[in-house]
Design a binder for these strands. Structure first.
Length: 269
DNA sequence: AGTATAACCTGTCTGC
DNA sequence: TGCAGACAGGTTATAC
């Protein structure tokens, strides 16, 4: 469900609500979310600690509790909220009556416990690629990634190469750059690559400003929808006229994911 | 090397 | 109304 803009929107709200709060208890109701630590290990590491910050790396949320950090990935339907939910997968109770509930109907979310000092050198954060808005996101680094025959859309979704982009924003960035999603990455001209490099950050920034895209299940911390769905040009719009040229938007499948594009604006050559 | 498919899960929507 | 099938914002293992 959530990509970089949605996770960033949640991060900002979580930080605003929970920073400086001391964790009083934590209960796990869905142990399958735990990847590398038991409920007891999490409790031992985190209960009694004060939340220092809520960070983000790509689509991961980082709850920094001082010595240890809890790393959460929302996958498709994960949703942290301060409003009680029907079937919470876990609950973090803080002082001053602040409680964090985590909903996840599909149970695909993941939670890791890592020592804060080494968080970025350990799973699941190690191995992530360059990230928009970080110092690693340079045109030079981006161009280096493109030296492969892999389809450009698939490359944009490969978190080991470039981290944070998901299906919606990959489709939107390619449309804005007028690049066909099945083009081999290394077939892009310098001008096309530069357009794509710039459009990725432009679209992600706009999506953050609009507090994310709600197509189905994504909700902000307090339950409101995002706004960026009102600005989508191609995603989930198969059959509708292209906003640039009126040609019907088409859908194809790449790596089992739906790809939406305009066959007129996004040339195969 | 690169792609397709299935798997992990559940909920929702579409078409017959 | 009922039911099968498709599909979903993510990631990963396995097979061609």
């Amino acid at each position: 469900m959530p990509e970089l803009p949605e996770v960033e929107t949640l991060r900002r709200a979580l930080e605003r609500e929970l920073i400086g709060r001391r964790l009083q208890s934590l209960d796990i109701y869905e142990p399958r979310l735990l990847q590398n630590a038991s409920e007891e290990e999490l409790q031992r590491a985190l209960v009694g600690q004060t939340l220092q910050s809520v960070g983000r790396r790509a689509k991961f949320l980082l709850f920094d509790f001082g010595p240890h950090t809890a790393v959460l990935h929302l996958r498709m339907t994960g949703w942290p909220t301060l409003t009680p939910v029907q079937t919470p997968r876990f609950v973090f109770r803080f002082d001053q009556k602040k409680t964090l509930y985590f909903s996840d109907p599909r149970r695909l979310a993941t939670l890791h416990l890592v020592p804060t000092a080494h968080a970025h050198t350990l799973p699941p954060l190690n191995g992530l690629g360059i990230e928009p808005f970080q110092p690693t996101y340079t045109l030079k680094n981006f161009l280096a990634l493109l030296q492969t025959d892999q389809e450009i859309k698939r490359l944009l979704l490969d978190q080991r190469k470039i981290a944070g982009i998901g299906n919606i924003y990959a489709c939107e960035a390619l449309f804005a750059s007028r690049i066909h999603p099945q083009r081999p990455a290394k077939s892009l001209s310098r001008a096309e690559a530069r357009r794509l490099f710039a459009q990725i950050e432009k679209i992600l920034a706009r999506a953050i400003a609009e507090q994310g895209t709600t197509v189905k299940t994504y909700r902000r911390l307090a339950g409101e929808s995002g706004n960026f769905q009102n600005f989508l040009a191609v995603y989930d719009r198969a059959g509708e006229p292209c906003v640039r040229c009126q040609t019907p938007i088409e859908r194809l499948t790449q790596g089992g994911r739906g790809t939406y594009f305009c066959p007129t604006c996004q040339h195969r050559v």
